[in-house]
Amino acid sequence: MIELDQAAYSYGGGELLSDMTLSIAKGSFYFLTGPSGAGKTTLLKMCYADLVPTAGNVRLFGQNLRNMTRDDIATVRRRIGVVHQDCQFLDHLSVLENIALPLVVSGQDKLADRANLKELLAWVGLSKRANALPPELSGGERQRAALARAIILSPDVILADEPTGNVDWDMSQRLLQLLIELNKMGKTILIASHDLGLIRTAKSQVQARVLRIYNRRIQLAGANL
C-alpha cells in the first residue's frame, strides 16, 4: 500500500532522511519511533503525499508520488486518513461539520452517511460535543475528533502523528483502543510516537511492528523495547 524505495529527504542543505526502504502491507500495524527531530513527521508527510522525496521513490497504492498530479494526490488522500499532531481543523465549523468535511469534499454527503456520522461521533465519544467549535474542545477531544475525521471515508490506511502527545494516560489508552479496533477491521495503521508505554500496550494486544528512525535511516526495532 505504501512503499518507500531508497527515499531520502533533504532540507536546508542537510539530509534529514536517507535511504529509506519500507513496504507497508495491508492490515499491518506499525509504530514509528525516534527522538524528536529525527524525521518521523517528515516520513509520514511523504506517506500522505504532502512531501515529495528529494531522492528515491515513494509509491502510494502503486502510484509513484513523482508522477502524481494534484488531483491524483487528492484521490489518494481519500484512501489515507491522517490524524495530525495539531489536528488541523477549520475553526469556524462545528465538530460535526469538520468530521463530515471529507464526505463533503468527496461528494459523498448523503443521508446514509449522515446516520453513520452520528454513530461515529458516539464511537469516539463526542456525541455531546457535535455542535461545539474546535477551539472549545480539550486536547483529547480534538484528537478523537481528528481520528473520527480521518476514518469517516473508511480509508485503507490511517496515519497518526503523535496522536497521544497532548492527552493524559487514560485518553491515550482510549485512542489506542480505537486504533486497535480499526486495525482489527482490516485497516492499516502507522503511528508516529515516542511513547514507549503506548507501544508496549499495543504490542500486547495486536501484532504491531516498531520502526525506528536512527541516524537518518529507518530500521526495524527489536522485541526488547
Binding site: 494534484r70 487528492a74 488541523q88 469534499v105
Partner: peptide
C-alpha cells in the same frame, strides 16, 4: 490554512 486543511482531507482544486 483553510486550503491546506481541505487539501489534506482530499479536496480537489476545482472544489
Amino acid at each position: 490554512q483553510v486550503i491546506r486543511v481541505l487539501r489534506l482531507i482530499g479536496a480537489q482544486d476545482s472544489y
